[in-house]
Design a protein around this nucleic acid. Sequence first.
DNA 1: CTGAAAGCGCTTACAG
DNA 2: CTGAAAGCGCTTACAG
Lengths: 349, 349
Amino acid sequence: MTHDARDVVTLREVARAAGVHPGTASRALNEATRSLVRPETVERVVAAASALGYRPNYLARSFKTRQTRSVGVVIPDINNPLFPPMVLGIEDRLTTEGYVTLLANTQNEAQRRERIFAEMLERHVDGLIVATAQREDPELVELAQDGIAVVLLNRVVEDRSFSSVSADDGAGVRAVVDHLVGLGHERIAHVAGPQSMSTGLARYQGFLSSMQAAGRRAEPELVAAATSFTINEGERCATVLLESGGAPTAIFAANDMLALGCYSALERAGLRCPEDVSVVGFNDMPFIDRLNPPLTTVRIPHYELGAQAAQLLVDQLHQPHEPLRVLLLVPSLVVRGSTAPARAAVRVG
Amino acid sequence: MTHDARDVVTLREVARAAGVHPGTASRALNEATRSLVRPETVERVVAAASALGYRPNYLARSFKTRQTRSVGVVIPDINNPLFPPMVLGIEDRLTTEGYVTLLANTQNEAQRRERIFAEMLERHVDGLIVATAQREDPELVELAQDGIAVVLLNRVVEDRSFSSVSADDGAGVRAVVDHLVGLGHERIAHVAGPQSMSTGLARYQGFLSSMQAAGRRAEPELVAAATSFTINEGERCATVLLESGGAPTAIFAANDMLALGCYSALERAGLRCPEDVSVVGFNDMPFIDRLNPPLTTVRIPHYELGAQAAQLLVDQLHQPHEPLRVLLLVPSLVVRGSTAPARAAVRVG
DNA sequence: CTGAAAGCGCTTACAG
DNA sequence: CTGAAAGCGCTTACAG
């Protein structure tokens, strides 16, 4: 009825068939302890195991060793197209290392996040890959202090006690600003992301420093900060910028969702993109190249981000006293139809 | 160093603190057996447990009971925007039922699929939600015969030995055909999906019967079958249709990806959508409403699909001899800018 | 190099 | 209603 049939052959039976003690059979079958056993014995045990179709009982093993070879992956929202490629990268790497992926979405709800972490620990995951970090994240810091293996993905905590894999936002933003400056834009605005997240802050700071490096000033009326990375917030902020009197000829949005909101705001204001205002995003979401106009944006290697995070975690699991590692992957600017040479300043409202 | 600190308090200690035998403590703490214990004793045990911060060891429990309260979710490709909402629906429902989600992508590779199923069984998942079914799927049928609880999601196996949750494709297609016929289209073409999948077949058959019901003939030169649900295949098939001499004024693509390919083919042929040719998709992928033109398509309640599949599985787990259930969720046509009244027949090539 | 034994932390017949 | 005991299937010190 259930799949107990599969489980019917146990280590004890393999041992009997091979004429050895179960302990010996265990050692022979386990990679790590195999060298303790005489080669001929190993061979005998392995033969018996495969003859009987022996499959070790993971539950028993996990119970005994307190290791589950599973890792918890905590993301904000799988519906955000950023995350699926990361999850795939994680899964691919984890799988080849013999780990299994427990996935959970926080949906940005504190209560849900707490539940998820508690559940993952109850399930004895060997480690956690967390893509929901806030810059200040006491909950996460506490986890780390409890000695749970955690790798941060995409976003980062201010407290530098985590290994992490994220994109080099500074480099990405620099490429954006250089591109816009190169097109002759004088009045470049920024729709910043939430400053409570490392990505929002890093891109904002990158904007300030890149502007300065390019000899431009980032005027206060040309910056608006969104409270979330959503289309609605992008529209709201872009509207603020357009009505501020700052007369931007280009808007750099801290991610593609916000950029989509910029499109909406421009449309509502009767402005054309890129003729009147250029728009740049960040992330290179799927299908963003099929919009009208196709969005100029910064491509982040999301799959790689996930794969590297998984690797870091696995390394850390195998070598618990490994020093922390902070990986920054290189993004690249993808120029499409939403940016064009600056024309004249535009004033609205 | 590890989170062993959390595990330090064991059932035995709770029992001692409450002055009862561990067996009694177990019964008192377990929902199902609590009624066997005198209320005052239950109270004492519960108090002791919470005073000591007792957390049952899942590993021990799973080992003993052979249940893990985990379910494997097998999807073709998380990067396909269809699946994230389904996965979220699954996770939400599973979580409230106390189950955890093991996620894996087959990437449509047979080898990978086999590995995944083997792994999931090794991990003793309580059941499986499978969105990768082929119409003929001996592997899956075998699983079911082994008595593993399986619920099919989105796609279905010809062999009717599974519970499943999918969309009522026939109803969706009917709405599409009626819409196009209502717009005066005489020559309606179909880019069919892979006929090895139930979705591809059902939508094709739905097309045939709806056309017939509407008094139209589905001419052979107005149907082309894709070998995969991809943009490239959509473009290839649409090109075939446009060059076949059938002169379609509307193309119904079996999903949005294929419809995207139709857009490309029209563009390459110098035809405008919807002025020259109307296009309809299926699924209502995220952001498909932001394309140029916004795609008319059939909305499928993907989140609900996932949630219902999870529910079916959980029900089946709790009530193993429950009869199979086949759920068909109702889709709805979303009319956007890619469809317009028919003008004249168009001939290309 | 191998055997004998203990034990991981629970659950669950079985007695009483 | 509760206790005493067995046992799930492994791994791993400990002897020899």
